[in-house]
Nucleic acid binder design. Structure first.
Lengths: 411, 411
DNA sequence: CGATTTATTTCACGACTAAAAAAAATAATG
DNA sequence: CATTATTTTTTTTAGTCGTGAAATAAATCG
């Protein structure tokens, strides 16, 4: 599931350089061989060998630049690019009561999409695996001729992303499901399992690099509160794989009841269920609601007009909780750009001032705060994009590191 | 100051493998060529070339195993080891009113030691640089014939360890001192600058690997509260180099005054000055003391006998603050072993219960807490060990990565 | 003293580089 | 307009590095 990146042998070096070329083409798009050399740092000589081999293998396409002779003089460039037909992959996103399945090509483009309504909390382990199985098979049936090379699975919850286990999810009633193992057995291709926050961070790192840069945090506001992070261009996930639980940083000793069973977590104040509970005037120790529609919260806000003092207080507390979390992040990881995903209306209108005030009162060097906080809304597109990146990255690894260049699996 | 570890060319690979061999010899001690192969994963063929070259260069010694023919049959091993005479390095530790300078050999052994009393808070930037300069020159005079290849500088405070700047230190009144630049200009050798916590973490990673493993945190109790961390065998220091400020995680909104100027930091409750202030019964907003002798705290504890309710409360609060910090660490980095360094008597007797209780009430999965918390005392030896590791690692890098194998600098 | 065992070195082959050569276009010039 | 110079890109060539396999070295065992 994870490639041991120990480069010792000459072969490893070749594989690594193949990988470098593929990643460059993926992020930069079609390029001339010369530019690939500039970007990767590889010599033209090596690229000559590498690229002809990969063209031979059908991984990249190579065509003469069609610039209509407007161009500068000199030998015209040949443009190389990832061949979309080199592979297909399947992405599966499990969200509350919905299973989204996509078929994508090697360039990452969605070529088929299908959604299935299911009652997630009623699923047993085997039913879940079987349903996913069936959906993938169905999707693969829509496009034949190219081998399927990867499956990427995403959901809200806790993973063991090394083993590919789904450890716990708020939208399920079962836990510890070895979903990767099950799918790998069936489809004989690498399966990656990631939670929504890591996928969203991955998508942002790819599509919002200009704003967020190499190191940033993505805080996800939905039923719970999640976080993903990149540090120095690499996804960060702690010592094991279940860290970065921003929502469960202790905020108040013996405070409000959290979904996790503990008291006083940030999530208990700033999540959908925490906010709704407080807006309803329910005691802070009331068992968290299982499922909330965004509309339930919106309807309590009188369309943004003249909030009651009590409601204002709810959002002030939520803002302080988030501010406390961000202050803690800034203290432990250094001040980095933060993307706040989802609920951007209430965040901007009702919480931002308290977030800022809390941050500024507890962290030094947060003067340029405005440049650090970015708000985005998301309709699930980021997770889908993250899954596509995950799947294509898996294929890149396979194509870069494979030793037996003739054996291409078909499923 | 930091080696870009991008392996692209065959040369990089060779350098990387030289490095691998040196690191193996450093951590494992003298080994047969065969065992070096087993551990590094390199082929005997490569080792043959690499090791003869390095013997030639005078970096490693190579001698026949002197096991008195008791051994197994087969060709006897030749034992290779780092040659202590390959280089010397200087370590400099700046602590409160004291400058500790050591000369060490390539094996890391201290071959000369000298201490200088100075009033650190009275030092100007240039006086500091000059004093350090003189001490290093003096130390180098004690042992001639081998080139000096590295200087490692350590102190309590905030560094820019990439640039090698001393950004801020509680024991100084000046700040933003480009100490590495100054020393590099004078001695023409690489200079590393690290703070005490990172050095101590480095020393622990080397000498306490069995207990602490690949990922651990080291929390340092002294005048302030500091932290160092290793994750997956690598030192962790956040997005920039001044992160991991455990002591400045916000603990209470608008709480006690911290040395950093903010209110409610963990340090304001659990550091030497925070505890003494509270034991004295001074208001929590009293300006923190600049300098405290451990005895001042000890003398207030009546030799551990029958603590006053008020004093007990002080340590309970301190324990809760630390527990809060550790809970936050466990939430963001996953539960990992934690080494508590210094003040082990008061920690064990007066704070541990509250630390445990706070942790258990705010983090899930901290059942095996006893296996995660380790207490050590330290008299400065860890920092010295960290500096030696830092310096020898710098020489290893130079010897591994240098291209011009004949030019050896002398100073 | 040959057989066996273990450790190290030698050799043929693939991989990456720098430098030289080749390829393929435009610009300049008589 | 043909021919040469210039520019840019790509390929070829000679050299170095790491590997697996074979060869060599140096000991003990029977």
């Amino acid at each position: 599931m994870i490639e041991g990146k120990t480069i010792i042998r000459s072969d490893d070096l070749r594989a690594e350089n193949r990988h470098r070329v593929l990643l460059t083409l993926r992020t930069e798009g079609p390029l001339s061989r010369a530019r690939v050399g500039k970007i990767t740092g590889l010599s033209q000589a090596s690229l000559s060998t590498l690229l002809s081999a990969m063209t031979e293998e059908g991984i990249v396409t190579s065509k003469n630049s069609q610039l209509p002779s407007s161009a500068r003089r000199g030998r015209p460039q040949t443009i190389v690019a990832l061949d979309p037909l080199a592979a297909v992959a399947v992405t599966v996103a499990l969200t509350a009561d919905m299973l989204h399945t996509c078929l994508i090509d090697y360039a990452g483009k969605v070529i088929h999409k299908q959604n299935l309504s299911i009652e997630t909390r009623a699923l047993s382990e085997s039913t879940l695996c079987n349903t996913v199985n069936k959906e993938i098979t169905k999707a693969l049936g829509k496009f034949q001729g190219t081998p399927c090379c990867a499956i990427a699975f995403g959901f809200e919850g806790v993973t063991d992303s090394v083993a590919g286990d789904l450890l716990w999810s708020p939208i399920l009633t079962t836990s510890n499901i070895p979903i990767a193992l099950s799918l790998e057995k069936k489809f004989k291709v690498p399966v990656t399992v990631q939670n929504d926050c890591r996928l969203i961070a991955k998508a942002l790192h790819h599509s919002r690099y200009d704003e967020l840069g190499d190191s940033f945090a993505a805080i996800l506001f939905s039923h719970g509160i999640g976080m993903g992070m990149y540090l120095h261009g690499e996804p960060f996930s702690g010592a094991h794989s279940s860290a970065l639980e921003l929502g469960h940083i202790p905020f108040e000793l013996d405070g409000a009841l959290c979904r996790c069973g503990k008291n006083g977590c940030i999530e208990a104040y700033a999540s959908d269920y925490g906010i709704l509970r407080a807006l309803n005037g329910s005691p802070a120790l009331t068992e968290p609601a299982l499922r909330i529609q965004q509309e339930q919260i919106k309807s309590m806000l009188n369309d943004g007009k003249k909030l009651s003092k009590q409601a204002q207080q709810v959002f002030t507390t939520a803002g302080r909780a988030i501010g406390h979390g961000m202050a803690t992040i800034y203290t432990l990881f250094d001040p980095i750009p933060v993307a706040l995903i989802g609920r951007s209306d209430t965040i901007n209108d009702l919480m931002m001032d308290d977030i800022r005030a809390t941050l500024q009162s507890s962290v030094r060097g947060t003067d340029k705060l405005d440049k650090l906080i970015h708000c985005f809304d998301d309709d699930g597109g980021l997770m889908q994009q993250g899954l596509a990146l995950e799947a294509t990255a898996s294929i890149d690894r396979q194509y870069a590191y494979r030793r037996d260049l003739n054996a291409v699996k078909t499923c």
